[in-house]
Nucleic acid binder design. Sequence first.
DNA 1: ACAGACCGCGCC
DNA 2: AAAGGGCGCGGTCTGT
Length: 583
Amino acid sequence: MPVLAVFNGDAGGNGGWLLRLDERGNPATGPEPHADLIAAMGPIEAAEGPRWIFADAMADYPAILRAGLRVRRCHDLALTEALLQGYDGHAGSPRRVAAAYARLHRLPVPEDRPAPVRTNQPTLFDLARGDTTAGVDPIEVARSVYAEQLRRIAATEQPSAFGLLVAAESASALVAGEMSEAGLPWRADLHDQILNELLGGRVMHGARPPRLAALADEIAAAFPDIPINPDSPASVLAAFSRAGIVLDSTYSWVLRQTGHPGVTPLLAYRELSRILSAHGWAWRAEWVHGGRFRPDYVPAGVVSGRWATRGGGALQIPRRLREAVVADPGHVLVVADAGQLEPRVLAAMSGDAAMARAAGEEDMYAALAAEAFGGDRAKAKVGLLGAMYGQTGGQAAAPLATLRRRYPRALDLLERAARTGENGGLVRTHLGRTCPPPSTPTNGGDPDDSADDPPEALADSAVDDGQAAGTVARTRARGRFTRNFVVQGTAAEWAAAVLAALRLRLMDLAISTEAARTRDGPAAELVFFQHDELVVHAARDHAAAVVEAILLAAQEASDLLFPGTPVRFLMRPVVAQSWAEGH
DNA sequence: ACAGACCGCGCC
DNA sequence: AAAGGGCGCGGTCTGT
């Protein structure tokens, strides 16, 4: 039986209401006010483990965690609303929905609670548009939104798939809260060691560390006729131009082609400078505390459903620095990443039997190569990646033609998605996440109101027109976006399902072991997730159980999304002391 | 002085 | 040899 938990949002208070619902979202009892909502939730979680309905788990769950409670399941109204609005062709901006919930939380609850009114309650969408009326009851609004969401989910083309998406998305919000609370183990001493080794030591704020200073001198020496600031692309372009080399960008691969002696120190400078500014001492002072790096995860922060983070650059930690991520004494890190996830997803979702056969192998690219590319693995890989990203020319062109001939169903899925996008249409992932509508030049960057605008169609007859060239380029870009969306988004769904399954298994592991929560911390907990890779921090004794849990979670996710598929989704857990070791 | 665009690159 | 998806971030540069 689902239980709606609404915090009343008063400053710093823990008060709120619980309302038990039936499976259609109708009230099963009256709302219960609680001065300490979390204290009231604890026994219910222990006894029943219900699906909690939260207005916005990303806002509500941290306080619950701080109070020492973890819940097994939830339905997140905000994330679900964004999914449903997206499904209906609206932009479904999570920001708008979040704002609606902030407003919902601020609504005063009528002292004399009226009998629940079934009509005239504003929907969340109304709230999001600011159409609220005074005197509405936030508990009843949340309840009716939930009931309405159940109805809308049931009305989708594939209700069970969409329901799975909602469950996985909601679970992601719980995982994100738990991972932020746990934090990624980060050894400051090792981080220092690496930085010192790379940069030659730490200097006063603002000055260049020795290695960077030396490289800057080398660069200057290579361009004797003109002062050069290696941090400024414009200055670099000017320096090369003075040396007789005219470039239109300073991308590393462009620079490398020049063969100029200044290139080697310049690229080395940029690489080190980036580590210093993005993940150096200043970064650590801001983001690492008590031996833990705690980024703010934003599940579904990317339109494709991938996670984003706010601050801390958590999804861009340079490989070199991963040596500083080391398990606590008596613990291990279990690192697992999904190998070749996106091409396997394509094989499974397209139902292309030949490609699925290749995806049943350990190395899918090698299998494709053996079957269709005379054993040339690189060709198979570049062709398939090009197909998923929308590359048409260059070295991908020839392999693409081969792929289209040998794996027509898989390629057809991609090309249909691209065409739909080019024609202004919307595409969906395997579970039903819908891409945002195209933005139009008239409304600039805000796609929120563009759902009814006429699509930009690809007009071949207008290609000659210089004015239309920009439109054609935008249209093609839209096609590449929708083409990639279906694969990237479905991969994100598989990964979210793995996370959801794994966190339940890890909770069970904690419960079943005596050392569920010793002074050394929990038996095992998720501490990092990045698109197709996860890290579990576990007491050494539980390493084997965690490995098993990861394998089972991956299998569970595959069975949920693609029952019976011959495609193998590889998730290879490695037990290691440091993240770097774990691959 | 501050905001926003652009750049180049880190990760997937 | 050199075209194509999604992000976040810190730096420079431009405009106000």
